[in-house]
Design a protein around this nucleic acid. Structure first.
Lengths: 240, 240
DNA sequence: TAGTGGTCTAGACCACCTG
DNA sequence: AGGTGGTCTAGACCACTAC
């Protein structure tokens, strides 16, 4: 545990416990550095974490102010800047998968472009329904180059990411997500057990590993009644 | 212009020009610091910016690797982590507004909770259609406490944010956005000139100023055929 | 003008990965 | 074991805001 993370946790506690009250200025960086017996740079690293979380706002010349707190994340809201569809985002829930189809083929043009692969490089194509506590909540269509790692039905029923990380040392460090609405197709509506043409939220994702290589292209579709997504944006510099 | 930003731009240029090639390791931080004649700390701040952009990946012990580049932002994709509906995100486009309704009233419960105001504090209610190059592309429903700033129709036809920043020193530094799909209501479908029950993408936003106070609660609705949204997620630490 | 946060240095030591 | 990135120091100076 590093010093700057300890201090970050400590100050955060003080903010959440209203020791530093929202809307008021905090002690100066010099004072805080002295209090924790560290250099100002270390203290500043702690403050940076708090800024990223939107808990404080610093301004040259005026000081560090404690920001009013965002309303707490409702459990119904899924964060858009974390992995989706993993046990990660549904810690307490029971997430399972039903495999609709599993096979391999050559990639179409969009898949070639998204994954930056040649037309002759085979990909897995997987269609899965995800269930939360036994109830359908999303339908996922996944494309993955076969060279990334061999897959089988057993892996698909568990966590693909867990397998890739544990056995293959492949981690999703970056992702591009594209979000839009569409009306349910024949196939989607059957998979999600809803009416045809019902409004769906679609999240397209290209997942990149630590080397910046795309290893997965997927579309996840969500029923209108399930899963709202949330993203908190924090900027210390103004959008001028 | 600070030194670390200059160096950031310089290295970025080198990456984009393929001087540092994707997948290869860059020179060590010591070497780069020496090259630019700065301390390692300054050099590290430059690298941090590149990490945030997803251009490089650092790993203790192994070095700094250049990441394969994300496909360029198509102009059709609107970033989810920047202000929406402003001229900001549509620099070259001609954005105008048509006011559907403008008035003031007392807030309902959701609005009170979202804006953290009392039930007797009046709010403006504004319905606007946004047009891009003369064509309808979104319908916005905005709630703003009247105490924030006096509004009139002239301001509403231009940029609210421009007015708040310029005349009132209020800037949106933070925002919470909730995204989901819904089917077009009677009112929405007329505003967007589409069929009833067509799938819409809804973006609810609570905007916070630099002091952390909520000053706007809005819902923006987008036709399925317009405006896909995108978010690029970068993590230097693995999601383990 | 005083006081705040922002940048920057030169150097030390630690944590982690790869041979 | 050697080399890399990560943390941390003590102090200096600059940029900005408020009085």
């Amino acid at each position: 545990m590093y010093r700057y993370k300890e201090i970050y946790s400590d100050i955060k506690k003080d903010i959440l416990r209203n020791h530093y009250r929202a809307g008021t200025v905090m002690p100066t960086q010099d004072e805080l550095a002295k209090k924790y017996n560290v250099s100002r740079l270390t203290l500043r690293k702690s403050l940076e974490l708090l800024i990223d979380e939107g808990l404080i706002h610093t301004q040259q010349g005026s000081g560090t102010v404690v920001r009013a707190q965002l309303t707490n994340n409702s459990k119904e809201l899924l964060p858009l800047d974390l992995p989706i569809g993993t046990t990660y985002s549904h810690r307490d829930q029971d997430i399972t998968s039903k495999i609709l189809s599993f096979g391999a083929r050559l990639p179409n043009e969009i898949e070639q472009k998204s994954l930056k692969i040649k037309s002759n490089e085979p990909v897995y194509e997987i269609r899965r329904v995800r269930l939360k506590n036994g109830k359908v909540y999303s339908y996922e269509h996944t494309i993955m180059p076969t060279r990334i790692a061999p897959l089988d039905e057993k892996i698909l029923k568990g966590s693909i990411y867990g397998y890739l990380g544990g056995e293959r040392n492949i981690f999703m460090t970056d992702a591009r997500r594209v979000i839009y609405a569409e009306s349910a197709s024949e196939y989607s509506s059957k998979a999600l057990e809803i009416k045809k043409n019902a409004p769906l939220l679609v999240i397209e994702q290209i997942a990149y590993d630590q080397k910046g290589e795309a290893f997965e292209y997927s579309k996840a579709r969500f029923d209108e009644d399930h899963s709202k997504f949330v993203i908190d944006v924090h900027r210390n510099e103004f959008w001028k």
